[in-house]
Nucleic acid binder design. Structure first.
Lengths: 205, 205, 205, 205
DNA sequence: GCCTAACCGAGACGGTACGTCACGTCTTTTA
DNA sequence: TAAAAGACGTGACGTACCGTCTCGGTTAGGC
């Protein structure tokens, strides 16, 4: 199901030969393969995708309006699902949330595929927007709920807007994974960042 | 001065007609104008730049190897210089550092030019790398020195690697300016972020 | 009745839903309409015909092998029948034969439909061939019989092959109508051409 | 020199790299080769021409607006020049004029190239028009002058419009060569047609 | 005051990809 | 089984840029 027609759920009787799902899959798979070969986004032309997928160009344009829309669907196909939170304590859940970000960062470095998508997803504004609207916003919502729980439990101060608190927790890890692709990501990084955020940077007594 | 020939400083006797600096300027200015008109990076073709600048294509290729290299020089031309730190205290300097980031974020939203460059600078890896190597790294160095001073003065705990501390301070503001272009950036944001980072998120006694 | 299945007259028991004759008519009518709108043959695609006729493409391909065969049937549908000869004299019959050619020429100029078909029937060799084999050859046969009668009656010299005589009579009118679409076709042209051909171009005593 | 820019004779200073005549030649030659291989006009796509000529598509479109204009220039390149008239007598000149038409007809049958061009030149109205305007009209003018001379010399009757006389002479041969490609063209055909036209079809005393 | 080399604008050149259209075949549902 | 609808692989269309390559014409230093 392409992103352009998601709203087509209404029971319009689709006439004529139905679109082949196999074709849809092979197109997305072709993009994934090209990405895995390390091809930069600019070199992944629609014509090459069609050739790789063994598909006509028109078949691609019938489903997506352009390369960007197609890539959005590809991204959705690759994007891993966030793991459930342990739920033992607010602090542990915060650590788990950051840990999933760290894992994603590691995945980017190990998998040629993810690396390519993320490193160059900065490419198109639309692609970035979709990523932002689906992944980022969803995760932010998760963070907000978590922090609200912490505030209610008295573990987190109540005199600061939740969004600011969220940024303070998520920002550092995101800075490391997205903007500093060369930085190390030690195993205990999530714990340290959460604890530092909670306790502050001032010397402890 | 183009990035491709910086090493050409050695006193090779350049014969023939020297390259016109006016041409160089008008090319960069053309890109800036196109960017200001809101044209997405993909639509800014070399041919269009040449047309806008009233210049032959070869004249561009004589100076830069491609669009990316040209854009790197354009970026250098528009990138504002960081303001000096007040130096009154480590806390004030940290606030000033974050404040310069916040100003940049505001500029991106107000100036069509900066907005375009940044929002889509995620475009090309090379462009990103140049930005990273020149601007980001430079600013990180500034942060590192600042924090080192804070540690020496006893204002910041010494048991955490400086890079981690830096990320904790810079990350939240960067998250707000770069990755959440829709978020508000209140005037006292820098102060609040610094203070929160220093004091921690736990409820204060 | 399509040209591809003319030999299908034998009483093969046709099973399943019978082909709709109305569909057949509406397809040919669609072509005629498009032709009347002045569309050049190249722009009359099978898809457009199907759309105009409100018919599936397959329904067309089930009946004709391609556009040319379809057009042949269309041509048969619009080609007017030759009027009968008066039979009063050989000379009058020759005039009547040429007159029917002249009428056709005038029709081409007045009717957008005929004009289009003829002016560009030069299009496809197959279409031309069909026209030649059905219309031209048939008319030639008519001319041959007429001239043979004239020779038998002593009105036409017997020392020249009939085909040559036929060409001498028909050629000038055809040249005017087909190859010189701008030329005038005065009412007495047929008479004058026949008389000139009979009497010769030399000055009369 | 392409047909689209013939009027560019005015001494405009041509700037930029001049168009290569070799390229121009190789394009036309490519079309000629494809025609000689017997490819029907419809199968001779611009892309195939470009491929055969080892040339970019844009290079073709830079010179000609489309396939038709290109074919017009190709036709000019193939079209043989009419031989000079003997001038001994009006009758001999008329025979020579018809003979050149007959030769052209024979050439069409022998050379795969000419055959293809003429047999399918009926293709495009534009191509036909160009042929008409350059070749046909020119030849008609030749015929008109010839006949006017005959009338002045008293060899041809003066009471008939020259154009009609011309059609009576040229029509039969044209009918044979263009519209009846299967007909025989005996060596003495030109003489016989001229003599028959002059003397008339009535039995001679 | 030439000479010559490199510059400059313009634009032609062989390519590649674009997004659209039509081809003729196929695969659905509905009749 | 036919019919309407429309998806499918194919391939041409005409356009836009790519990066390279000529052109005629400038514009400097070195002779």
């Amino acid at each position: 199901m392409s992103s352009t027609e998601q709203e087509d759920v209404r029971q319009e009787i689709r006439r004529g030969r139905p679109r082949s799902e196999a074709v849809e899959r092979s197109i997305i798979e072709a993009v994934v393969n090209l990405l895995e070969e390390g091809a930069p986004l600019t070199e992944i032309s629609i014509e090459r995708i069609a050739r790789t997928a063994g598909v006509g160009k028109a078949t691609i344009y019938r489903r997506w309006k352009g390369k960007e829309e197609l890539l959005c669907d590809v991204m959705k196909a690759i994007e891993p699902v966030d793991p459930p939170l342990p739920g033992t304590s607010v602090r542990d859940d915060l650590v788990a949330m950051l840990e999933s970000l760290r894992q994603r960062g590691l995945a980017q470095r190990s998998s040629a595929l993810l690396h390519n998508v993320f490193a160059q997803m900065k490419s198109s504004p639309k692609l970035w927007d979709v990523y932002h609207d689906t992944v980022v916003v969803a995760r932010r919502e998760m963070g907000r709920e978590l922090i609200a729980r912490g505030v209610a439990e008295g573990a987190i101060r109540a005199d600061v807007p939740i969004d600011v608190l969220n940024d303070i927790l998520v920002g550092p890890m995101l800075l490391r994974t997205v903007m500093r692709p060369d930085a190390e990501l030690p195993e205990d990084l999530s714990e340290r960042l959460v604890d530092l955020a909670l306790q502050g940077l001032k010397p402890q007594l």
